[in-house]
Amino acid sequence: SLSVDNKKFWATVESSEHSFEVPIYAETLDEALELAEWQYVPAGFEVTRVRPCVAP
């Protein structure tokens, strides 16, 4: 099958004044980091952490 098993990760994104967490959907932690950097670094943010979303 061609289905992709995307998992939810939380990326911590920082600017000079703010820090916030955004959801990233990817297959692996490395891919989540790449996606977060691709989305947020060009906008002037720094991705400081990516972690798996742990269900309660």
Rank of each mutant, 00 (worst) to 15 (best):
H18D: 07
F45P: 02
S15M: 07
V4C: 15
L29V: 06
S3T: 09
A11N: 01
L35M: 08
G44H: 01
D5I: 14
F20V: 03
P23V: 15
L35P: 00
E14P: 00
S19Q: 08
T12N: 04
S16H: 10
L29K: 04
A26W: 02
C53K: 03
T12L: 11
E21S: 05
N6K: 15
T28P: 00
S16R: 12
N6A: 14
W10G: 02
F9D: 01
A55Y: 10
H18C: 15
V54R: 09
Y25F: 11
A32M: 02
V54D: 12
A36Y: 03
C53T: 06
S15Y: 06
W10N: 01
T28K: 03
L35I: 11
H18P: 01
V41A: 12
A32P: 00
L29E: 06
K8S: 05
F20P: 00
E14Q: 14
P42E: 12
C53W: 05
V47N: 02
V50K: 00
W38R: 15
S1C: 15
K7L: 08
T28W: 03
S3A: 12
V13I: 15
P52C: 05
F45D: 02
R51V: 13
I24W: 01
K8H: 11
F20A: 03
T12M: 07
A36M: 04
E46P: 03
V22D: 02
N6W: 10
N6E: 07
A11W: 03
V47K: 01
L2K: 13
F45L: 05
F45E: 03
V13E: 00
A43E: 13
R49N: 14
H18Q: 11
F45W: 05
N6C: 15
T28Y: 03
E46H: 09
V13S: 01
V22W: 03
A32I: 01
P42K: 09
F45C: 04
E31L: 09
V4D: 09
S16N: 11
V50R: 00
D30H: 11
Y40Q: 04
V54I: 12
P56R: 08
E34C: 12
L2V: 12
T12Y: 06
D5T: 14
R49K: 14
P23E: 13
A43L: 15
L33P: 00
P52Y: 09
R51W: 09
P52T: 07
V41K: 11
D30S: 10
K7C: 15
Y40F: 10
L33C: 06
S3H: 13
K7D: 03
G44T: 00
P42R: 07
E14F: 06
V22R: 02
A55E: 12
T28H: 05
A43N: 11
L29P: 05
P42V: 07
L29C: 15
R51F: 07
A32F: 02
L2R: 10
R49L: 12
E34Q: 14
D5K: 14
L2F: 10
L35R: 08
L2Y: 08
S16E: 10
E27Q: 14
G44I: 00
F9E: 00
S15W: 07
A11Y: 02
A26C: 05
E46V: 13
N6T: 14
E17V: 08
A55C: 12
W10A: 03
P52F: 08
E14G: 05
F9T: 00
S15Q: 05
A32T: 00
P52D: 06
V47Q: 01
K8G: 05
R51S: 06
Y40W: 15
W10C: 15
E14Y: 08
F20N: 01
P23D: 04
P23K: 05
E34Y: 13
E17F: 12
G44F: 02
V4N: 13
T12Q: 05
S3W: 09
G44E: 02
T12A: 03
V13G: 01
Y25D: 04
H18M: 14
T48V: 12
G44L: 00
A43C: 15
Q39E: 12
E34N: 09
V4P: 13
E34F: 13
S19W: 12
E37Y: 13
T28L: 02
Y25T: 04
P52L: 13
V54W: 10
E34I: 14
H18Y: 13
S19G: 04
N6Y: 14
A43F: 13
W10F: 05
S15R: 07
V50M: 06
P23C: 15
V54T: 12
S19V: 11
F9W: 13
A36N: 01
W38D: 13
A26L: 01
S15E: 03
L35E: 04
A36W: 03
E37R: 15
V41H: 10
V47R: 00
V54L: 13
L33T: 08
F9H: 02
A11L: 06
V50Y: 01
D5P: 14
N6F: 13
G44R: 00
T28N: 09
V54C: 10
L29Q: 06
V50P: 00
T28G: 05
P23F: 10
F45A: 04
E17S: 14
E34V: 12
R51G: 05
I24G: 00
T12F: 06
F9Y: 10
A55R: 09
F45N: 03
S19M: 09
V47C: 01
E31D: 07
V54M: 11
T48S: 05
L29A: 09
E46S: 05
T12W: 07
S3L: 12
A36F: 04
L33D: 01
V47P: 03
A32L: 03
A26P: 00
S16I: 10
D30E: 14
E34D: 07
T48P: 03
S1M: 11
E21V: 09
L33Y: 13
T28Q: 03
E37V: 09
V50T: 02
E37I: 14
D30V: 10
F9G: 01
E21L: 07
V4W: 07
I24N: 00
E31T: 04
Y25W: 14
E14A: 12
R51H: 06
R51Y: 10
N6L: 15
P56Q: 12
T12E: 03
